[in-house]
Design a protein around this nucleic acid. Sequence first.
DNA 1: TAAAAGTAGTTCGCGAACGAAGCAAATCTA
DNA 2: TAGATTTGCTTCGTTCGCGAACTACTTTTA
Lengths: 170, 170
Amino acid sequence: MSGADAIDVAAEQWAAACPRLDVAPGDVLARIQRLAQLIEEAQNRRLRRRTGMVVNNLGDFDVLRALRRVGPPYALTPTRLRQAMLVSGAGLSGRLNRLQKEGWITRETSPDDGRSSIVRLTPEGVADLDRDLEDHYAFESDLLRALDLDRRRRLAGDLRPLILDLEERL
Amino acid sequence: MSGADAIDVAAEQWAAACPRLDVAPGDVLARIQRLAQLIEEAQNRRLRRRTGMVVNNLGDFDVLRALRRVGPPYALTPTRLRQAMLVSGAGLSGRLNRLQKEGWITRETSPDDGRSSIVRLTPEGVADLDRDLEDHYAFESDLLRALDLDRRRRLAGDLRPLILDLEERL
DNA sequence: TAAAAGTAGTTCGCGAACGAAGCAAATCTA
DNA sequence: TAGATTTGCTTCGTTCGCGAACTACTTTTA
């Protein structure tokens, strides 16, 4: 028995204040949301503090990661980027503007389709990013240290169907 | 076998593009963050669309819920509200300003401590809220329909220690 | 008991993201 | 093949949240 978290406390309060209301399902969602907030805040702080890391924003970092992991020539269209990343078109444009201004990426018009563009990681961008990625994943691993490997796997396995279901329906 | 979600796809790409990088721990975090985004977006949409619901923002709704679940007289200080809710002081002030303007809450100076104030749900606020809470939790339950009861419990049990650990360290 | 330090909450300025509207380029239609 | 529709992306206007600075009150210190 290792204690009650903030959501347990809230659930107890609900039971006392509104016994007829079934808030049990909300517990899982509330925990997911609270964790996401804690994690994102921690990651943003980390990104901002890291010397050499000009990106100070997890959203921008996500764009770079998506470009990096497709492999050479590290290029994607904005539409493909959006599919990887759950952000509005306007939001993505903003991210790309910032990253371009900082020299991480270039934008060229697509030869196949004049409406489309090709976002490409610059060579220095790739190099800088590779330096930062290792630190980033080490940090993520540290954030998860409360869970052993089995629990992580089980957690991932339980979260996957939820994502699949919601992505399909929403 | 029910398919691969967006994070599985990303993991495969990483394995091909950067075999030396261990991104496995990030999978759990990425799923939590992606889910939180999907869920919050869905809840915000729901709140905005619901007739009779003047609150169109999950953050504001959270304030109302915190006040509701402490029971009569449905009052808390801003400091206590913040403890329940992971938001900055400025952010909370903004929420309270909006809610006050819409007639959900009142603010009075504390008799015990002149710096502090007491935020109180108005009687009409309580009534309106009780009408909306039932819908809200039904909606949350629907969001979780991909998971049976056992999995929800297991999920909650696996997330709890993570929250406790992160809240303590961050 | 007066000055210093701490605490509660707010306002201000800014950054990031959203929805809606706009603008080309591409594709469909008659 | 001209006009209408769709598609890919950007800009505009607004909202929400954060950190820092500020105000006002309370507690500590000497």
